[in-house]
Design a protein around this nucleic acid. Structure first.
Lengths: 238, 238
DNA sequence: CGGTTGATTGAGTTCGGTCAAATAAAGTGG
DNA sequence: CCACTTTATTTGACCGAACTCAATCAACCG
């Protein structure tokens, strides 16, 4: 499988050979993080993180102890691009499954952006795409829980297809129901019931860490999902 | 008052004189949009929009007819930076109060980004800051309604202070309760009750289109608001 | 001064939350 | 390979925040 970040960036526009190999050098030093451990906490702002395998989650812990996951990070996703002031407790980044991560010095990335116009353009596109995605999650939050969950699954399908980690209608999803609940902003008890609902309607099959969507069209209609906001060729083709 | 976009961008890093004046030329052709009218709909992707006065909202309409506002656009905010595929019904942009807007050809902006490194850097920062903000809204969505509303008010205070449209503890807020409800993702009836609660606790005073926060510290604590995510000097100073 | 829009209140309902317990599954050490 | 612990999923009963429907009241406006 080719490099997931490059694969993803090339969905916006082609990169030169020099740009591709420059990006590849970023990810030489990999690190392994086991499930339920943080990849990054807030005090270290001089690096960004690239997930190269597994699924991670950007999250914040609320006062009462509950956790809200605001986005998933799948292979090819850069995290903590935004350097918030050092004083702040920023969002955290935690591994939901066992992950492999590359630590990238922020200065090194900045350098690539300065010297390679194609990378600069791709990073601009990436940030705006993530923004689009975050806003879609916001819209999603005002849908009923079953449609919301369906929407999340449908989005994950596209995002994993982009980096070659999903086939037509299924992908590996080794996270717990609790993680899913925190990403949807509902309780663990309730997500279980919602899952049962989707299973009963044959909208999804989820067993042995593999999620299958028997009829993608039907799930998509149910979820009110419009792939357009992702601005990916894979999505447009679909 | 100096140009709001420049004012905002300079919160990340200084711009050269050439860059400032290049940005100024972008906003020569203003347009007036009255409250409750769309500034942009989805089919026109060759321009971006700069709000120069008033408050607008980025929103999407759900199937059942309800509307979800995913962010406010205040003076100095650029909108529709992301060109989604032409096929998609993207987010819409509507004026909540009477607005003045500058239409900026996307190509013109791209040109500035190519030629002025400082503008390129500032735009990168801007996109990441908006992303940070969108994710903060997401976190906010899992708080109880009263805290959520308090958080929105606190955020608006900072964002308006940045462009010189708010003083220490108050600003003009001429939107309707219905708009606020759609931004918070709750019903019109409920926002009314929540507002009454905040008023009863002297956390806010909202009359004659002016919103005042008698005790900013107290509201902030109540909301669980941490200004750090905005990465603005104004916020850091506070 | 009627007419339209926005704010407020009341009553009843529902979706999703909490608490608590019961299974089921997955490790772990002997 | 089996007892034992831990973690994840599932179920039941009850509760509460927020929604809907519907009506009233207040403002604004030509």
């Amino acid at each position: 499988m080719s490099h997931p970040l490059i694969r993803k960036l090339e969905h916006s526009a082609a990169l030169s050979q020099a740009e591709r190999s420059a990006l590849e050098t970023l990810t030489l030093n990999r690190r392994s993080v086991s499930a339920r451990h943080d990849i990054a906490v807030y005090d270290n702002t001089d690096r960004v993180y690239l997930v190269t395998s597994g699924i991670a989650g950007r999250y914040r812990t609320l006062r009462q102890g509950s956790r809200r996951i605001v986005s998933f990070a799948v292979p090819g996703d850069l995290c903590r691009m935004h350097t918030c002031g050092p004083s702040t407790r920023d969002m955290r980044l935690g591994a939901l499954t066992h992950c492999s991560v590359a630590d990238i010095p922020r200065a090194r990335l900045a350098e690539l952006i300065e010297t390679h116009p194609g990378i600069a353009r791709a990073m601009r596109w990436l940030a705006l795409m993530e923004l689009s995605r975050a806003r879609e999650w916001l819209v999603n939050d005002s849908r009923p829980a079953d449609r919301r969950l369906a929407h999340h699954f449908r989005e994950l399908l596209v995002c994993l297809q982009v980096v070659g980690l999903a086939d037509e209608n299924s992908f590996e999803l080794a996270i717990s129901q609790a993680d899913l609940a925190d990403a949807m902003g509902i309780s663990q008890v309730h997500i279980n019931r919602v899952l049962q609902g989707l299973r009963a309607d044959d909208l999804i099959v989820w067993s042995k860490s593999a999620l299958t969507i028997p009829d993608v069209e039907r799930l998509q209609a149910f979820a009110g999902f419009d792939p357009g906001y992702l601005d990916l060729r894979a999505a447009r083709a679909a």
